[in-house]
Computed example of a mutant assay.
Amino acid sequence: MSKHILFVCQSCNDAAHKRIKPSQGAQLLEQLNTLQAQDSPITIQPVDCLWMCSRACVVSVSAPNRPTYLFTDLPLADSAAALLQFGELYRNSHNGDIPWKQCPEALQSAQVAKIPAV
């Protein structure tokens, strides 16, 4: 099966928390790494910037020949487990299309973009 990657911006902070260290993105990355199972087929890949600098937390989910999902304004407290759940739905889907009703509730308050596969 293709490689499925969860890209996590590790430098982002929302506008109200610009000076927080470690950044909200780094905190989310740590939560994801803590919760992820050792044998997970989903790769968590930290990135320095996803160009959404005032919209923490920012994550994209991508795989070859599948749409890419971009999540912004993720609530730090509830997102890690929901992102891993979304990653599993994405990986197990036939073509990467996730119906909105199946999207974990914690992610439904975030800003989401679905970018078609190339």
Rank of each mutant, 00 (worst) to 15 (best):
A16E: 15
E30F: 11
L32R: 05
R91N: 02
E30P: 00
C12D: 08
A56C: 12
G96M: 00
I42N: 03
L76Q: 08
D14H: 10
R19I: 03
D14N: 13
G25V: 07
L76I: 10
V58D: 03
S11D: 04
I42G: 03
S79H: 05
C53K: 08
Q111F: 13
D73K: 14
C12N: 09
R66P: 00
V61K: 01
C103I: 15
S60D: 04
L50C: 09
P104I: 01
G96Q: 00
S109V: 07
I98H: 01
K101M: 06
A26H: 15
C12E: 06
Q108R: 11
T72R: 04
L32F: 06
S54T: 14
C49M: 10
M52N: 10
S23G: 08
D48K: 15
P104V: 02
Y69K: 03
N92A: 11
L35H: 07
T34I: 03
N33F: 09
C57L: 08
C103H: 04
K101D: 08
Q31G: 01
I44R: 09
T68Q: 11
L29C: 12
K3L: 14
L107K: 08
C49W: 11
T68N: 02
E30V: 08
A80F: 14
F86S: 03
E105F: 06
M1S: 13
L50N: 08
P64Q: 11
P46R: 06
C9Y: 09
N95C: 07
P46E: 07
P104Y: 02
V47H: 03
P104Q: 00
A81E: 15
A63P: 01
T34A: 10
P22W: 14
P67D: 07
H17K: 14
P75V: 05
T72Q: 10
K101C: 01
S79C: 07
L32N: 03
R91Q: 13
L74E: 10
Q10Y: 00
P75H: 12
R91D: 02
C49A: 07
